[in-house]
Amino acid sequence: MEAFTTHTGRAVPLRRSNVDTDQIIPAHWLKKVTRDGFEDGLFEAWRRDPEFVLNRPERAGATVLIAGPDFGTGSSREHAVWALQNYGFKAVISSRFADIFRGNSLKNGLLTVILDQAVVERLWEVVEADPGAEVTVDLVERVVRAPGVETSFELDENSRQRLLEGLDDISLTLRHEDEIAAHEAGRPSHKPRTLVP
């Protein structure tokens, strides 16, 4: 995983709540067997509308998405995270994320930042008034900065360290292989098995 320390970029205000993962990447894109090439599928249905915020020329090259509450609900598809990253987003800000989406994002180095809805509203106003306004998401200091806005955010220390160092979860877990083996030795024999010996 690529490390995330701090990022500064222009933002896209997405004034919608309950942006489900079917909107982020529709199901027909899920047939691909790679982790890349999803950028054209990002918000595919909404992007057919030339006025959709992502299509506005002033939003080209923006890297921070500021969305309404309950972002990433629905399907567990990690493709939603890959699509956002393939498109160029480095961070997503919302007052509430669906659990699975958030877990997926942090495992891929896409920083999901939870801020109060009132702060999200202020950020929307700032970046709508000035599309060139830059938003900084600083994971080292756990702070989001934009013109006239500076606010701290929470992220558990374990996730933060993994992101800052770009650590691979599987390698970390395999350091404890002896503990896994010990647990396995104590599992009762009535537990299900998919293969009959």
Binding site: S76, I100, G103, K107, D156, L174, I180, E184
Partner: peptide, 21 residues
């Protein structure tokens, strides 16, 4: 029983475990 993403699928395949908040 819970749904997981593809990174976690790989994690379970490799380790039969998951770090869970």
């Amino acid at each position: 029983a819970f749904g997981i993403g593809t990174s976690q699928v790989e994690h379970v395949l490799a380790t039969q475990t998951l770090p869970m908040a």
